[in-house]
Design a protein around this nucleic acid. Sequence first.
DNA 1: CCGCCGCCCTGCTTGC
DNA 2: TGCAAGCAGGGCGGCG
Length: 271
Amino acid sequence: MPELPEVETIARGLAGALSGQRIVAVKVSLPKVASVSGDRTFIHELTGEGIAGVSRRGKFVVIGLLSGRSLVVHLRMTGRLVLRGPGEDAVHPHTHVVLGLGDGSCVHFSDARQFGRMRLVEPEEPWASQLGYEPLSKDFTAARFASILGGRKTPVKVLLLDQRRIAGIGNIYACEALWEARIDPGTPAKALKKPAVRRLHRALAGVLSRAIEMGGSSVDDYVDAQGRQGSAQNVLSVYGREGKPCRRCGRHVVRTVLAQRGTWWCRNCQT
DNA sequence: CCGCCGCCCTGCTTGC
DNA sequence: TGCAAGCAGGGCGGCG
């Protein structure tokens, strides 16, 4: 499941290879995953575009184009964006879009579950207007985090996953940050006292930035733009570790369900 | 505005 | 061993 650290890793991996290149060919084998606003066609509009750079916003990979438009990609759970060099013609079984580049290499967009999407957006299109704070930006202060949590009875973990408030956190890093901050995921957000809010704010930044340094977590089938696995899955404290000992107190990690999502945590040290 | 539910899909796990 | 049913999951639209 690509979340902020995985998407950041993919974007960085694509940036060097794509910047300055031209898209010379576009192949779409599953039309529903690739769209353009209006009645224009994805293939027609994208072919010939130059690539200015690649960045990330929330869990979106943003491929900036010289025309000012952007190719915005969301990988959902099983989506991949992988580079293929000029000689490499191995194709992942669920490849839905291939962007051919000027130097003979290409970018493969694949997704077994077909939930991922790529969309070409116009320069003025406010495609990210519904996205909340970037959790690693200076804007995301402890005070602003407190204002997001304040007054809401919603479980704190559910708020962490709400992309309209904070963008980029998914199930893995929500669980990990709550564990690090020693907070019960089901705690009503407004019940968190100031020290707990501060611990969680710090834990989010720590967990996310460490995961970026490790190239993301390959828990399902995530790989980076070069097709390599990350290593952050090896240092996860609770996510997916049901029944295994808590790395802090040794008690068993439990799995509960919160807002229809699996939630891993330690009943003993998260309160 | 808020919260909940079902849907989209396929691959893996579970149970017989 | 084989098969079918069940489950998982991020975002979104619909509903109350």
